[in-house]
Design a protein around this nucleic acid. Structure first.
Lengths: 155, 155
DNA sequence: CACGATTAGATCGTACACGACATATATATC
DNA sequence: GATATATATGTCGTGTACGATCTAATCGTG
């Protein structure tokens, strides 16, 4: 296993493995592919499942709160939430106090998804090919990176 | 900075930060947002730029070779390559020896993108908020994770 | 050479993902 | 209390992303 050389900033022909953004991008594609059989069985997509996880943690969220949790815009969430509603996993209802807001809640059918304890942490760690220390560190560094990028792009 | 607890696999209500897949997913969204102003200036999208990088490294690739490099299917690449052709960054031509294949090459205009040395490695590292050691390790662990996930989903 | 099997791209339908804009409701100021 | 402003969500257009399927070209075997 060779150590990766870091190309200098003056070198023009950087290849894709030199880009951290590409490592993140392609790992995301790989996760989608790896999880697809599981989600197909549930009739869900990967972002839909993430949405249900967020709602399982804290039900009765507004679209905006969900967007802040999932890092998504209303233009992405609204159609997806309508599909989840059509599938019977969530309900959407206008807040009676503030009719601008729409509150999203899990249905019993939506809660039932989690009775299967679908994402057992240990088996997931095993499936990544990383030891537990690397796994935890990777997760921590990614979150740090993400939040730093988001903070930078807000200015 | 608190150390993240690892939830046991029997715990049902795992929250999103507990999922490595969500860390990867949301970091990818954050990268897209952070790079958007730069890509807007070039009239490119993030996947389009990655495609040009792959072609800059090795021009005259077939659609299939590009797909293997970028982890994308022909159903994704074909429309994107047509847009890149329409923008004048690449050419698409059937291979004369094997007419099933289409060979993609950078135009001078496509090559010119890289004269700007757009992605200086050091400034990119600085923008991530990670020290160089964490940056390199993160990249290496992500690639390992990605390749492990892909290998697992091929079976 | 013939003809079934394989391969490479392309097309289509579905689902994100976002910016720009539209709509409806709520708040603020006078 | 009328009107300007702000906020929350929805709609629309563009661009990925993929599986299923189609077409055309090539290969393999007789």
């Amino acid at each position: 296993m060779e150590e990766q050389e870091i190309s200098s900033s003056s070198e023009l022909a950087a290849s894709l493995p030199d880009f951290l953004c590409f490592a993140v991008y392609s790992t995301n594609l790989a996760f989608s592919k790896a999880y697809k059989p599981l989600f197909d069985e549930l009739g869900l997509t990967y972002p839909q499942y993430a949405t249900l996880v967020a709602l399982n943690e804290q039900s009765d969220q507004t679209v905006g709160e969900l967007g802040a949790t999932l890092f998504l815009e209303s233009s992405t969430l609204t159609p997806m939430l309508k599909r989840l509603e059509a599938s019977g996993y969530v309900t959407r209802q206008r807040d009676t106090r503030d009719e601008r807001q729409v509150r999203i809640s899990l249905t019993p059918q939506g809660k039932a998804i989690f009775d299967k304890a679908f994402c057992g942490r240990e088996s997931v760690i095993a499936a990544t090919g990383l030891d537990q220390e690397s796994f935890v560190r990777l997760q921590r560094d990614l979150i740090k990176l993400r939040d730093h990028l988001l903070a930078a792009s807000k200015q």
